[in-house]
């Protein structure tokens, strides 16, 4: 077995790829590919927040967020060989998996991943409890949920996960031009829905 590279995991940080973390990610992936379970745990700890946040925003507060997150991170172990250095960052690769799982779930297999659709996951707090903004945030959540899946995913990956348009296009397997068209429709649609839902609000 290959000697495990010395890596310093950053527990709880969002797993956005950057120049400083690419080497660490690559070292972890090489170790995972050689069957190193410690490197795998480090990688899971590093990326779990970003993946679960993405799934939460795509699916809402349901048990399926846990299933999608778990399945995505399990594939980091079972499909590690399919990751190729230089082709895509680890975070980009994982978000691509999560994106495909979420789209599959939303389109055709709402009951296939788990039967516990109505069971909420336990959270420390509620995302809609920002003081004085409950109504606005509920409208936003509804407007996001009403967006077509690909538009929602593109907007989440761009705004919250911080990926570039090129990276998102790569994840969604479309051209950058097509992605930019999707993003423009998403922002336009979100704004229109918020104005329609709450005509007295500023947006």
């Amino acid at each position: 077995m290959r000697q495990r590279p010395v890596v310093h995991s950053t527990l709880g940080t969002d797993s956005r790829d950057s120049t400083s973390t690419m080497t660490e990610d690559e070292a972890l992936m090489l170790a995972i590919q050689s069957g190193d379970s410690r490197a795998y745990e480090s990688a899971v700890r590093k990326h779990i927040k970003a993946i679960s946040h993405y799934a939460f925003r795509m699916l809402g507060n349901s048990k399926d967020v846990e299933d999608i997150t778990q399945e995505t991170l399990l594939r980091l172990w079972t499909h590690a060989d399919s990751w190729q250095p230089g082709k895509a960052g680890v975070s980009t690769w994982l978000h691509r998996i999560a994106h495909n799982l979420c789209i599959d779930y939303l389109r055709k297999d709402r009951s296939g991943i788990t039967g516990e659709l109505t069971e909420d996951i336990e959270t420390d707090d509620d995302p809609s409890l920002a003081p004085g903004k409950e109504a606005e945030l509920q409208s936003l959540q509804k407007a996001l949920d009403a967006l077509p899946e690909r538009q929602r995913s593109a907007l989440i990956l761009s705004h919250y996960q911080g990926f570039s348009n090129k990276e998102i296009a790569q994840m969604m397997d479309i051209s950058v031009d097509a992605l930019e068209s999707i993003l423009a429709r998403a922002r336009r649609g979100l704004k229109a829905r918020l104005i329609r839902n709450a005509p007295t609000e500023s947006v």
């Binding site: 779990i48 927040k49 679960s52 946040h53 939460f56 925003r57 967020v65 846990e66 997150t69 996951i121 336990e122 959270t123 420390d124 707090d125 509620d126 995302p127 809609s128 920002a130 903004k133 606005e136 945030l137 936003l140 959540q141 996001l144 705004h159 919250y160 918020l194 947006v203």
Partner: peptide, 14 residues
């Protein structure tokens, strides 16, 4: 508004 919509901590799930 999008920035205000934050995901809650989910330590048990993690």
């Amino acid at each position: 508004l999008l920035n205000d919509y934050q995901v809650p901590a989910m330590p048990q799930m993690e």
